[in-house]
Write a protein that binds this DNA or RNA. Structure first.
Lengths: 135, 135, 135, 135
DNA sequence: GTGGTCTAGACCACC
DNA sequence: GTGGTCTAGACCACA
């Protein structure tokens, strides 16, 4: 797994690490039980304070993305959101709307937005739909 | 225009105000030349320091959402993004992908996501596409 | 980096700071990744409220001149204007015309103006022109 | 003389009026002894507070651009800057440098800047150079 | 009365 | 210790 930190970004460093792991999982590049680098090793590699890496790992564990086994390291966990259907819908719909509002103000055309959405959607390895005939 | 502030949110108060104005513009509830509440009035109404409101207005002005004129007030501006096409596409695509990654980890199905996206898209008043046959 | 504030000037203090940083970048005195003084340190040095410095830094960040990272400091960014060609041309042409009108009313001769323009132009470190044979 | 006020601009209304008169003088559209509209008339025409127009006229008189004859109206004055050569040079050079710095940060090429400068220069009616052979 | 600027001082997230 | 946010309150330019 290759991490890259963008120092020009406003996004906190620890958050960038979380983002990248989540993205790689969604892309299918990281799968269950894959081992992440140790905190120290990654800190050395990215030339970053180990506390920052530790914070990223802590957050990912909290989100259920990884499990850390003391002495063994950190591993990608089984996806299992414990949030209710309704809460999940609310979170995602709200975020979708915010992106759309942003696009509106950037005067992006509706069709471009649809196209970009579909293109982005294709990138990620969604599991086959349950209870749906096709997809 | 009705504002609501969620003090529990991580999102800064001034940003919440910006979000709401931008949303209302995109929904068509606010249109060009509509007058926003005065800084002091809105501050009193929301029980917030006037400087915080002023900060929100300043940010919106910088984004080109409104124009402020001392002595007159703040008004919805003509929307006209100064950003180049490439930058706009990059901003939106990146944000779309982040929402999709988030949805993936919440185990939202691809079809639900598509449906929510379309539903959200319908809410906002995009201008008719230029040079496209259908819309 | 040496800052000087003119309290007699109409130009806001925070804007004077922005001006000076931008000038030093254009002169080549400040280059990418150079660290700016911390907000508190500069505030102490100039005997100015830290919020005023912070405002200057915030504005520069929005203009893409610097990037600020809490816990690390503020750094000169890679310059990369997000604005479209047309907007950039409009901004600069308008400002050039205003200076010329000003010069006209001060009864400056056209030749003096040309000379001063060229002399000023030589001071700054423009990158070599892309795709042009000479320059 | 046609005035237009841009409400979207940050520039104060009274300043916009001054700008336009100065520009028209430099363009040769307004010459010595031309009569400006009365304060009341212009205020009515632009749908603006008469105080604002009065302020613009007051400033122009102070700058020596117009002379107001009570009861008769306001007239374009003879250009005659009483500032010393050195002061004038300092004012203009400083402003030229600021535009150039701005252009630098917008990543405008030096050649474009030269071209725009020349094009702008041609627009205005500079008087023939004194003591210079050609112009 | 409008927004803009500046000061003073508190608290928080990030590194 | 870094910058970011928010509050409180003063003064100024603009309309």
């Amino acid at each position: 797994m290759q991490f890259t930190i963008d120092n020009a970004s406003n996004r906190p460093v620890y958050q960038q690490i979380v983002d990248q792991v989540k993205r790689d999982v969604a892309l299918g590049r990281l799968v269950r039980d894959d081992k992440l680098p140790t905190v120290r090793r990654l800190a050395a590699q990215l030339v970053i304070n180990p506390n920052t890496i530790a914070k990223a790992y802590r957050q990912m564990e909290q989100e259920g993305i990884i499990t850390t086994k003391p002495g063994a390291g950190a591993f990608i966990a089984l996806l299992d959101s414990n949030l209710s259907e309704i809460v999940r819908a609310r979170i995602i719909c709200e975020r979708l709307e915010m992106v759309i509002v942003e696009a509106f103000h950037l005067q992006v055309q509706k069709e471009s937005l649809r196209e970009w959405f579909e293109k982005a959607l294709e990138k990620f390895k969604f599991s086959p739909e349950k209870g749906l005939k096709n997809e």
